Simulated assay, not measured.
Amino acid sequence: MSDLPPPNLAPVEVLVCVKCLREAEMPENGVRPGTALHAEIAKHKMPANVTLKAVECLSNCSSGCSVAVRGGDKRWTYVYGNFIEGRDAQLVVDGITKYAATADGLVPWRERSDHFRKNCIARIPPQEF
Rank of each mutant, 00 (worst) to 15 (best):
G105M: 11
C57R: 01
I84K: 07
L9P: 01
I41Y: 10
N60P: 00
C57D: 08
K45T: 13
L4Y: 11
G105E: 10
E56T: 02
A101P: 05
V79I: 14
A36K: 15
P126N: 12
P6L: 15
V16W: 06
Y99L: 09
T102A: 11
I84N: 06
S62Y: 03
L91K: 11
R32W: 04
C61M: 00
A24V: 03
Q90F: 00
V16I: 13
R87H: 10
S63V: 01
I124D: 11
D94A: 12
D94T: 15
N82D: 11
W76V: 04
C17S: 07
A103C: 07
R110Y: 07
D3T: 10
P5W: 11
L4M: 09
Q127H: 12
I96Q: 04
I121F: 15
M1F: 12
D3L: 14
V16E: 02
I96P: 02
T77V: 03
Y80D: 00
H38N: 13
R75K: 13
V31E: 15
A101M: 12
R32D: 03
Y78W: 13
V16L: 05
C57Q: 03
C65E: 04
S2F: 09
V67W: 02
C57F: 08
V79C: 09
F129S: 15
I121M: 15
P33L: 03
N60L: 01
R75G: 03
N49D: 10
E23L: 07
N8T: 08
D94N: 14
T102Q: 13
D73H: 08
A48T: 05
R110W: 07
G72S: 08
R87E: 13
A54Y: 02
V16M: 03
S113L: 04
R110K: 14
M46Q: 14
P33Q: 09
N8H: 15
P6H: 14
A103H: 10
T97E: 04
F83I: 00
G72T: 05
E85N: 10
T51L: 06
R32A: 15
G95W: 05
Q90K: 11
G72I: 04
F116H: 04
R22T: 06
T102E: 11
R70Y: 03
S2G: 12
A100T: 06
L15M: 05
E128F: 12
D88S: 06
R110E: 15
E56N: 08
F129V: 14
T77M: 12
K98V: 01
